[in-house]
C-alpha cells in the first residue's frame, strides 16, 4: 500500500542555507504523528517545504503525497491534492470576507479535482455546523480573513478552514502557540473530529501540552534538520521531563 506521505532522504535549503539534512518520514492514512523538537530545528521549514512556499528549495531526496511527487506540483495543486497547512501565524487578507474566502478556496479545489462546486446554501449550512463545533460566532465569518482576530480566533478560523476543506493530510504548525487552555480544548476537539482512517495528521509542536488533547500514534524528535528519534506517545512525556538538550548535543 502506498503511504500517504513518504519523505525520503530529503534535503532542502533557504537562500543557499541547508535546513533539512536527509529527512525521512512515513505517515500512513489513519495515523497521527507528532514532530517535536527545539526551536531552530527546522520544524516549520518542513511544513513550508511540503506545502511549496516560495524560497524553500528541495535539493535532494523526495517527498511524495499518495505517491505523487510534491516537487512537481504548484502550491495550489498540492492543496487540491489534499495537503493542508494550518499556519503558525495565519495571514490577514484585508477586504475579503472570510465566507467569500472559504467559498473561493473550496470551489477552487473542487474544480481542480473535477468535482462539482458546492452551492452557497450548502456551504453556509456546513460552515454553520463547523462554527458551532469550534464555538465561533458566525459574525466573525463576515469579517475580513483574520483581520483583527485574536490569536485564539485565528487558530479557530484555521481549524474551521481545515475541517471544511477535508484534506487528506493535515499539517499543524505550532497550532498551540498563542492559545489559552479553553481555546486549546476547542481546537483539539476540532482536530480530533478529523481523525479518520483515510486521513493523516502531522502535529508540529514544541510542547507536550497539545498532545494531552490530540493523542499521537507516533512521536518523532527532530533536531538539526532531521528526525533523530521515533517512538510512541510516551516519548513526548519523556521529552517533557528531559528536554531537548541531549538531542541537540547528538545532532551537533
Amino acid at each position: 500500500m502506498t503511504a500517504l506521505l513518504e519523505i525520503r532522504d530529503l534535503k532542502a535549503e533557504i537562500a543557499g542555507k541547508q535546513i533539512l539534512n536527509g529527512y525521512d518520514l512515513t505517515v500512513n492514512a489513519g495515523e497521527v504523528h507528532a514532530i517535536m523538537g527545539p526551536n531552530g530545528s527546522g520544524k516549520s521549514t518542513l511544513s513550508y517545504v511540503l506545502s511549496g512556499r516560495p524560497g524553500y528549495t528541495i535539493t535532494e531526496g523526495q517527498a511524495l503525497l499518495a505517491g505523487a511527487d510534491l516537487s512537481q506540483m504548484s502550491v495550489d495543486e498540492r492543496a487540491a491534492a489534499g495537503l493542508f497547512l494550518a499556519f503558525q501565524y495565519p495571514l490577514e487578507v484585508p477586504g475579503v470576507a472570510t465566507m467569500t474566502f472559504l467559498r473561493a478556496a473550496l470551489n477552487a479545489q473542487r474544480k481542480k479535482r473535477g468535482e462539482e462546486e458546492m452551492s452557497s446554501p450548502d456551504l453556509i449550512k456546513r460552515v454553520k455546523e463547523l462554527a458551532k463545533i469550534l464555538d465561533m460566532d458566525m459574525e466573525m465569518l463576515r469579517r475580513p480573513v483574520n483581520v483583527g482576530f485574536s490569536g485564539g480566533e485565528k487558530k479557530r478560523a484555521e481549524t474551521l478552514q481545515m475541517m471544511l476543506l477535508e484534506p487528506k493530510l493535515c499539517i499543524l504548525d505550532e497550532t498551540d502557540s498563542g492559545l489559552d487552555i479553553d481555546a486549546l480544548k476547542v481546537v483539539s476537539n476540532g482536530v480530533n473530529q478529523l481523525r479518520s482512517k483515510d486521513r493523516g495528521i502531522v502535529v508540529i509542536t514544541h510542547y507536550q501540552r497539545l498532545l494531552d488533547y490530540i493523542t499521537p500514534d507516533v512521536v518523532h524528535v527532530q533536531s538539526a534538520g532531521r528526525i533523530v528519534r521515533t517512538g510512541g506517545k510516551e516519548l513526548a512525556l519523556e521529552l517533557e521531563e528531559t528536554g531537548y538538550a541531549r538531542y541537540q548535543a547528538e545532532a551537533a
Binding site: 495550489d76 492543496a79 484585508p94 477586504g95
Partner: peptide, 26 residues
C-alpha cells in the same frame, strides 16, 4: 506571504492575486 497563504488553500496564483486586489479596492 498572503499570496502563498491563499494558494495553500487551493487558489491559483491568478485567483489569489485577484482576490487580494479585490479586497484592496473593496
Amino acid at each position: 506571504d498572503v499570496l502563498f497563504y491563499c494558494m495553500q488553500r487551493g487558489l491559483s496564483q491568478e485567483d489569489a492575486t485577484a482576490l487580494v486586489v479585490n479586497g484592496f479596492v473593496r
